[in-house]
Structure formats: structure tokens, C-alpha cells
Design a protein around this nucleic acid. Structure first.
Ligand SMILES: [Mn+2]
Ligand SMILES: [Mn+2]
Ligand SMILES: [Zn+2]
Ligand SMILES: [Zn+2]
Lengths: 141, 141
DNA sequence: CAATTAATGATACAAAGTATCACTAGATGG
DNA sequence: CCATCTAGTGATACTTTGTATCATTAATTG
């Protein structure tokens, strides 16, 4: 399973398919995201794209979230971070030292989640797992 | 493993052991928490304890968090919710319809987390799992 | 019952995000 | 192409959630 990295035209096409216009600001945001690593904040994007209004940044992030292009990572404190969604369903590692975010998938985990249904009242509709780590960089340092 | 529910005197004793004073406002907050179900917000507590200053509510919540008496539940959107921590380590169910929060523990999950260490770069220092459900009440309704 | 010092709460401030609305600029069809 | 239509933009104001300050209050200790 190669990390299916989508290029900006692809991402814009997804928006277009949903009936949204391809505008200058949206192009700018998507281009910026493409160059970005894992785990960026909305306010950070505002700082790096001063030519685009803050409201538009937030609107575009919401749009990309709804389109499944971004995933939102609610941290234990502070503003949420976003990452380009490379896989349909996956989880995240967060370094508690430096905040670096990584992706991973684990099929055993998904199987277990199905099994867990029996222990839980009601019907499972989804789940979210965050693994807190000290990343390699922080271990070395 | 019986759900070890602690009473307000116990909770206050934990604070006292940590060198904090037992004050009127802290007593009020703890008493309120005791009567509360799972999953309440800080702002909600402010509304229900107008006699206690907002700053003090937030300070007390932080204190109880640090003491391990509360757990903080970062939701995918909106303000975090808190619950009385009945177990040392556990996870939460959140009903996506009505927001009701529940606790659970799963030893298989914990074992799996240890195994997952091999797949992940760096060193695991913790994890957090939220299971999104439609609760029994919402299914019935 | 002082004296000491932690805690309180009014207030101001900060950060993150949303609503408004006059204006701009994509899309579309002639 | 151009004119039209409407989605999108961005300045601004506002809301929500949470924190910093600081004069005042009250819990502890002896
Ligand atoms: Mn991701
Ligand atoms: Mn809990
Ligand atoms: Zn790190
Ligand atoms: Zn429900």
C-alpha cells in the first residue's frame, strides 16, 4: 500500500466535483498544504498566507475536511492540528515533546474495534486513536 | 472490578494530600461533580455554580485534572468535556447524536497497544481511544 | 486569636473560531 | 468575448473558551 500522495490539481478536482469553484485563495491554500508536513494548525496557515483572509483560511480548511482531504486531530490541549488524509481510515502518533504528527494504520486494531462492540452499549459508528510518543528525533536529541 | 466511586471527602482529601487548601469554592465544585453524570463542560459548571467565580471554576478543574480526579475528553469539535476518573486508565464512548459520554476498559486493547510499539518509530508514552457510538437511548428514540 | 500566605473573583486580555455584509471574481451562456 | 449571475472573499465585529493580573479574602498554623 503505497502512501497515495495526491497533488494539488487532484485535490482541487475533488472540490470541483463537489460543485465548489476553483478560486485563487483555494488554490493558494491547497498549494501550501501540499508543501507542508504532517500536523499544521489553522492559525499557522494564516500566518504563512497573509494574502488570504483569515475567514477564508478557516472556511477552506472546513471545506477540505468535509471533502475528506484533511483530517482533524483534536489534541489534549491547544488548537487542533490538521494533516493531509493519505489513507481512508488511519490513526496518528503525536510526539509529546515536539508535537510532530505521524500516520499509521493497524488492521489488528480495526479487527479489535469490531470485537469491542460486544462490550459496549449502543452501536459503534466510529473510533479515534491517538498514540502519544517520544519521537526518534527527540530520543536522539 | 467494581466501579470505585469516590465521595467528595475522599476527593478533597486527595487535594489536601497534595498541599492544597480545602476551601469553600473547591468544596462546592467537588460536591457538584459528585452529583453529575459523565461528560460535563467547564462552562456548564460555571452556569450551575454562579456563586463561584469563573476563574476559580477553571482553576479547580485544572487542579482536579492534575490530581487525576478528572479526565479530559477532547472532542472532535467544541469545548472539551470532563468526567470523574473512576479507573486509572480507561477510554470513552461518545454518542454522536446526544453527546453522552461513557467509560470502558479493554485489556485486549492495552495488550495490542504494547504490540503496536514495534510498528511505530520512537517510544510510546501513552494513548487515547474514543469510540463513537449511537447510544441505546438514541437507538430507542 | 494573630500572622502568614494560598486562594478567590472582578476584570482585562488572549486565542480560536464564526457571522455579517458590501464587494470581487469565477462560471456560464449568448 | 462580454454581460450576468452568484459563489466566494475579506474586513470587521462578535462569541466562546480559557488565562493573567491584582487587590481583597479566608484557610491554616502556631
Ligand atoms: Mn492523518
Ligand atoms: Mn472517564
Ligand atoms: Zn518529538
Ligand atoms: Zn445518544
Amino acid at each position: 500500500m503505497a502512501p497515495t500522495r495526491l497533488s494539488p490539481p487532484d485535490l482541487l478536482a475533488i472540490l470541483e466535483d463537489r460543485g465548489y469553484r476553483i478560486t485563487g485563495p483555494r488554490r493558494d491554500v491547497v498549494r501550501l498544504l501540499e508543501r507542508k508536513g504532517e500536523g499544521f494548525g489553522a492559525e499557522q496557515l494564516c500566518g504563512e498566507l497573509p494574502s488570504v483572509g483569515r475567514a477564508t483560511i478557516y472556511r477552506t480548511v472546513r471545506l477540505l475536511l468535509e471533502a475528506g482531504i484533511l483530517c482533524k486531530l483534536a489534541l489534549p490541549n491547544g488548537a487542533p492540528k490538521y494533516t493531509l488524509a493519505r489513507f481512508d481510515h488511519h490513526h496518528h502518533t503525536v510526539c509529546t515533546q515536539c508535537g510532530t504528527v505521524g500516520d499509521f494504520r493497524d488492521s489488528t486494531m480495526e479487527r479489535l474495534m469490531r470485537a469491542i462492540g460486544a462490550e459496549i452499549p449502543g452501536q459503534i459508528v466510529g473510533h479515534r486513536l491517538e498514540v502519544y510518543i517520544t519521537c526518534q528525533g527527540c530520543l536522539d536529541r
